[in-house]
């Protein structure tokens, strides 16, 4: 468990650094540290499929973010210390912690196999689909409908990006 805690602490530190830095490029690089930590965490939890996908997506988003933020100087935004914002933040954080404490307390212990559907998938995936990689068997056969929705989300996001940054109608 120690390595999980170390990696998670590093990820939290990277996220805080990314929030606090004023240089955009440094923030993007600190965000990359968070992604690499997540990849290592997936690898330690023995999910190589997720680790591969997370790593390549992280590289892609890092390239896009660097390419899109290089040379961009956002003026540092100073929020005046209003008491209302502070109180709202405190109330929100306290409520979040209370609810997550109760919700996490109701969960089963870390890594204990209790899943009914999951054990069914594990037992019957090879016989029913013939795929040796059980992750592929689940996402493309048992849960193919979910994957269709995911593909639709990607399609919609591409349409949205192309609609926002299209050349027609943009002033130089």
């Amino acid at each position: 468990m120690l390595e999980h805690h170390v990696i998670i602490l590093l990820m939290i530190a990277g996220a805080i650094v990314a929030m606090e830095l004023e240089d955009m490029l440094s923030s993007v690089i600190a965000l990359g540290a968070v992604g690499i930590g997540l990849t290592l965490e997936f690898l330690l939890l023995r999910a190589p499929d997720l680790a591969i996908t997370q790593l390549v997506v992280e590289i892609l988003s890092l390239i896009i973010l660097i390419r899109a933020t290089v040379g961009v100087k956002l003026p540092p935004e100073k929020v005046k210390g209003r008491i209302g914002y502070f109180l709202f933040a405190v109330v929100f954080v306290v409520a979040f912690l209370v609810f997550s404490y109760r919700a996490l307390g109701a969960l089963p212990a870390f890594g204990s196999p209790i899943m009914k559907m999951g054990s069914l998938y594990v037992k019957e995936a090879l016989a029913k689909t013939g795929a040796a990689n059980i992750v592929s068997a689940v996402i493309l056969d048992f849960r193919g409908y979910d994957t269709l929705g995911e593909a639709t989300i990607l399609f919609t996001s591409v349409i949205g990006v192309l609609a926002i940054v299209r050349k027609v109608g943009r002033k130089p």
Binding site: D49, V56, I59, L60, A131, A132, N133, S136, A137
Partner: peptide, 17 residues
């Protein structure tokens, strides 16, 4: 993708890269 870790999504991202 049906034999080893990976699959269409990871392969597609690598091609895009």
């Amino acid at each position: 993708g049906h034999l080893t870790p990976g699959g269409g999504f990871a392969g597609g991202v690598i091609i895009a890269l």
